[in-house]
């Protein structure tokens, strides 16, 4: 009996040790694309902003497919929560907590997609829980609750946004050759595409 228990314990220890460790989240999970891309687009958004939702769901997928994956653009998501939105800071915490476990894009997408649901009640947790396993949700909730540095990136983004003169969301800051150009408000993809193509064609 003792031998059997020892064997089972040893097997259990081996199984536990053989499970792959969770992949660490990238250092900046809000940055996608090639570092050698000639243009970087910094996207300032507020998770409770309807125009930001439209940008995220209707424009960024095409932008990512046609420009980020082809190495022409690097995309940096910056948080710019507006005071007038009651639950945006909570949503931002959940998205950034998800980023710390490597699930940023998935959760950010879900938060924007379900904006109308949680914006009225603050039920961000419920919205995110629909797409993540319990284990991930437990980790995210713990990070939201206890990570004292979770909002550091938001503070930095707000500071940069103020330097860029951001006063509404969404705002795009297009960086090329060290020059930063700001475009306020929602930009439909055909316009953005044409503008980027012309910018990329310039030396």
């Amino acid at each position: 009996m003792r031998t059997i228990l020892l064997t089972l314990t040893t097997m259990l220890a081996c199984l536990t040790q053989s499970l792959p460790a969770a992949s660490p989240a990238p250092r900046n999970f809000k940055l996608t694309g090639s570092p050698s891309a000639p243009i970087t687009i910094e996207v300032y958004t507020d998770y409770e902003c309807p125009s930001c939702r439209n940008l995220y769901l209707a424009v960024l997928p095409d932008l990512t497919t046609q420009y980020v994956y082809t190495g022409r653009i690097q995309l940096l998501h910056r948080d710019f929560p507006l005071q007038m939105h009651k639950y945006t800071q909570l949503a931002t915490k959940y998205a950034n907590a998800a980023g710390k476990i490597g699930k940023y894009e998935l959760v950010a997408q879900q938060i924007f997609a379900t904006q109308s649901e949680w914006a009225a009640t603050g039920s961000v947790d419920l919205a995110v829980a629909k797409i993540l396993p319990n284990s991930d949700m437990a980790r995210i909730r713990e990070i939201v609750k206890s990570d004292a540095h979770l909002d550091d990136s938001v503070t930095a983004d707000l500071a940069q946004g103020n330097r860029d003169g951001v006063n509404q969301t969404p705002t795009l800051v297009i960086v090329k050759g060290g020059k930063r150009q700001k475009i306020d408000g929602f930009v439909p993809f055909p316009i953005l595409k044409s503008y980027l193509d012309q910018l990329l064609a310039q030396k």
Binding site: I174, Q181, K182, I183, D184, G185, F186, V187, P188, I191, L192, S194, Y195
Partner: peptide
């Protein structure tokens, strides 16, 4: 003084 895309975005609205 602004990118033409900015005014285009305003017009779109």
């Amino acid at each position: 003084r602004e990118p033409w895309a900015q005014f285009a975005a305003s017009l779109y609205g």
